[in-house]
Design a binder for these strands. Structure first.
Lengths: 337, 337
DNA sequence: CTGAAAGCGCTTACAG
DNA sequence: CTGAAAGCGCTTACAG
């Protein structure tokens, strides 16, 4: 049986009230008493029972994050870094992080969100891979539950969170590619429901337009944010008549898969075909050749999201409520020298 | 304010006792009453408050997992896959998974374990990256708190968990390398505190011995399970006089870093130098060249660990209490054709 | 088959 | 400066 506050109080011939107040730093406790309590608590290895505290305080001191998808997408290093950021910031603020996984827009996902919110498991939630019309956003806003999101959906909701500006970064990347002489530039995206697909495809088309290059439907392919998806989509692009000489990918995993497809066809990436990604995952520096990518500070974004969410929970007036991040173009050998 | 059991009971003119019993599937509730309760609960979107249930039942229905290390190691895909396995199995069993991260053997790590155990946050814990003498193991055993581990420590404790047999796999790998004509075979490991380092270095030496190759201290290097560490250690091995023609690495990340170091020296991996890893992370199939590795079914190991842990918590007699896993040698281009 | 009551371990007005 | 008491929302013996 773990030690309870009663055990501590009994040992010291104090009331549990005093013990509790001494621990929580109230200033109406005698300095001697507080010191005694702290010492004894340390000695006895007492930690307040979280469930009791939570029930009484009507909050859980826990944030929730539900990863999109089961196994495949999970292993995107993007998420490892993201969770690391969430975990570190949460720990620094004495909160806990509850993590689970469910396929995007599935019944499991809905059940999980409902259980966590209605069961009071979490005080707030972090959302990623936001969809254009996102059930989660509408639900959480409707329940008046604090949440922050990476990327906004189109739902008419007052968002708090971080948004990556794909537009400028991709324009910059296309500038780099056209300056290298590329004019047949393809794009591999993902499901049209995703906000990032919406933004990045749009940015790609705009970038072509401002370089006076006509868009071609045959140069746009669809993956699923995984290496496998990138591999397949690049296979299609590269095996058609008039293949692209450069491919812009929605994320790094897609790009790594695309590189693999190019290699398989005997193409030398960086010489015969240029390939670029988005995210700047750690592995992107270690591929062969190293991958040109639009680097997002994922770890720091995660920490910032936690800070914003805790601010929301504390009822602070945040400003700004939306932080815009500019990705950094890292030019590496996969798009020539 | 979320709906409580009182709201449901009031609406139905029933007692909270009956509502609770109907929901929990007790068989002494009239079929009609149960149906009514279930329907109403669905309608009102009621979910029992977890903190209250937990406090009353004296258990949390939550398992805990604390990742080793802060940022760097975290991004090992090994852990993403591992957490995915934990998450999926936990969800299937209606448990929750609490995840945090702390550097191995640090004060933060100790504080976290103590907080979770003593505060009743978790009913049981999963341990990985077990050290030869592991504080966590001793602590949890001393507190009689259920836990399972991947790899056993040398502590005199009755372990439940999964153990990968490095020996046979590495023997097999060395057989493969010597059959390719290699006799100068190096090894890149990690901290000697780690059980896997202990096992794999030992297996490497034994494998050399049984091939009648004398061990050379100069062919053994130390990394830290990251690409960076592998890169540095391989740099040392390859820049000495009489460099190895093959390198066995403690894990895949180390191997990927080592491949990078070889490339940088103008060596063609698979032709000029053979490099092999351990883990079989997804990326290992997509490196250039693809990486020979000892594949562990990480995702399934994680699921199995959860099953074992839930068995322990339920007080079942497990058999076997230790499952031994044989890794599968995947021969790919990084060790020749 | 249903309900009244106790109690899990805390925190926090309130009284002195 | 300290303590007695209420109550957070459940589950579960117990009584009928």
């Amino acid at each position: 049986m773990p030690t309870t506050i009663h055990d501590v109080a009994r040992r010291l011939h104090l009331s549990i009230t005093t013990v509790s107040r001494a621990l929580d730093g109230y200033d109406d406790v005698a300095a001697d008493t507080r010191a005694l309590v702290l010492r004894t608590v340390e000695e006895m290895g007492y930690t307040p029972n979280r469930a009791a505290r939570q029930l009484r305080r009507q909050r859980s001191d826990t944030l929730g994050y539900i990863l999109p998808a089961g196994k495949p997408q999970f292993s995107d290093p993007f998420f490892s870094e993201f969770i690391a950021g969430l975990g570190d910031e949460v720990a620094a603020r004495n909160y806990e992080l509850l993590v689970s996984a469910a396929p995007a827009d599935s019944d499991e996902e809905k059940a999980l969100y409902r259980r966590w919110v209605q069961g009071g498991k979490v005080d707030g939630l972090v959302i990623t891979r936001t969809r254009l019309h996102d059930w989660r956003v509408q639900y959480l806003a409707g329940e008046h539950r604090p949440f922050v999101s990476m990327e906004r959906s189109l739902d008419p909701v007052d968002f708090v969170g971080v948004e990556t500006d794909s537009r400028k970064g991709i324009a910059q990347l296309l500038g780099h590619l056209t300056s290298q002489g590329h004019s047949r530039i393809g794009y591999i995206g993902a499901s049209p429901d995703l906000k990032i697909q919406h933004d990045r495809l749009d940015a790609y088309r705009q970038g072509l337009a401002s370089a006076n290059i006509a868009a071609e439907a045959g140069l746009e392919a669809t993956g699923d944010l995984t290496m496998e998806g990138g591999f397949r989509a690049a296979g299609q692009l590269l095996s058609q008549a008039g293949p692209p000489t450069a491919i812009v990918c929605i994320n790094d995993l897609t790009a790594i898969g695309a590189m693999h497809a190019a290699h398989e066809r005997g193409l030398v990436v960086g010489r015969d075909v240029a390939i670029a990604g988005f995210d700047g995952i750690g592995d992107s520096a270690h591929t062969q050749p190293p991958l040109t990518t639009l680097d997002q500070p994922v770890y720091n974004i995660a920490r910032q999201l936690v800070q914003m969410l805790l601010g929301l929970i504390a009822g602070e007036q945040l400003s700004p409520r939306q932080v815009e991040i500019q990705p950094t173009l890292l030019i590496r050998a996969s798009t020539g020298n």
